[in-house]
Design a protein around this nucleic acid. Structure first.
Lengths: 169, 169
DNA sequence: TCAGCTAATGTAATAATATAACATTACGTA
DNA sequence: TACGTAATGTTATATTATTACATTAGCTGA
């Protein structure tokens, strides 16, 4: 185990990971899920998803709009927001509420309500199942007599990679 | 203990509580805190805080703007957003990120990062310390090597009062 | 006193985010 | 072919938030 991995408690997303794999995995998973579910991953929706997966950062809707224009000349805000709505419905992306931005979801098959760790330094967003947190949350809902329909847990701070970066350099 | 309280697991905010007490308590606390901290709870800031405490619902910035105009003829968006920034800084209100709206905080003295339970039916927002959740969250941050600066936990669903309402009526 | 500083507010303009409403297209199916 | 539905095109507009610069009020030290 490298120093870096150790400092990250084994939960490292390497600074230079092979991101093409992230993208192709996400797109493949999305395609398969949509087939199974009988919904259409149209070219526009695919392109938006691909653009979102261009990085692990949360992306703004109007940035997506700018970046999809070379591919979809006619793209307008509604184009993007419709695609985003679809992708959210299908659990393929998250909306980061505290940023008004969107990020790819790694776990569209499973529960897609996760803890999002948002780094103020590199802007990347890590999603974590945080099962203990979720369990405590369910307990809390029960105690409050609250029936949850959806939940969002978002934390802003400095991620493991960026802490390492600072402490090493 | 009433039937209603029982059904709410003892965490009831009665449908008809004496809300004037909520307001005056919030305003008094705010005043005292600001004195102690050496910051100014100016008339505008006070009025915005009072308007927010007009209910337990989350309020939109431009609704506040409309409602403060009779008192502050010159009010503009910046007027409201500045007051909101101040109140958030002082922990006197929360921004509900998933609604782009604002709600009074009951616990400005103590930790003001809480679980917010947002009812889809009555729109009221309940804040809960949810200490077990917070503890699990800290644990998760540690495991992820993440240094949190701020966090938001927001759940949408049906609150205890509204569940009671449906099951009784 | 008054010059200078700071915090707060006034004011106008505009940026950034998101939705509504209606028209059109593409495609499957009766 | 006619019809229905899902997706997209298109225009306009609503909603949320910030920037930049001017003004005011009150304090502080020369």
């Amino acid at each position: 185990m490298s120093l870096t991995e150790e400092a990250n408690h084994g939960h490292l997303r390497p600074l230079e990971h092979d991101h093409t794999k992230c993208i192709s995995k996400a797109l493949n998973t999305a395609e398969q899920l949509c087939v199974v579910r009988g919904v259409q991953l149209t070219p526009i929706r695919q392109q938006v998803l691909a653009l979102i997966w261009d990085s692990h950062k949360a992306v703004k809707a109007y940035d997506l709009l700018d970046r999809i224009k070379p591919l979809q000349n006619a793209a307008k805000p509604a184009t993007i927001y419709r695609a985003l709505d679809f992708l959210i419905e299908q659990g393929l992306i998250h909306k980061v509420e505290s940023l008004n931005a969107f990020v790819g979801c790694n776990c569209s098959e499973r529960q897609h309500e996760l803890l999002l760790l948002i780094c103020k330094h590199c802007n990347e967003v890590e999603e974590r199942p945080a099962s203990e947190v979720m369990q405590a949350l369910s307990q809390e809902f029960y105690q409050a007599g609250f029936s949850p329909h959806s939940k969002a847990i978002e934390a802003h701070g400095i991620c493991a990679n960026c802490s390492d970066f600072h402490s090493i350099s």
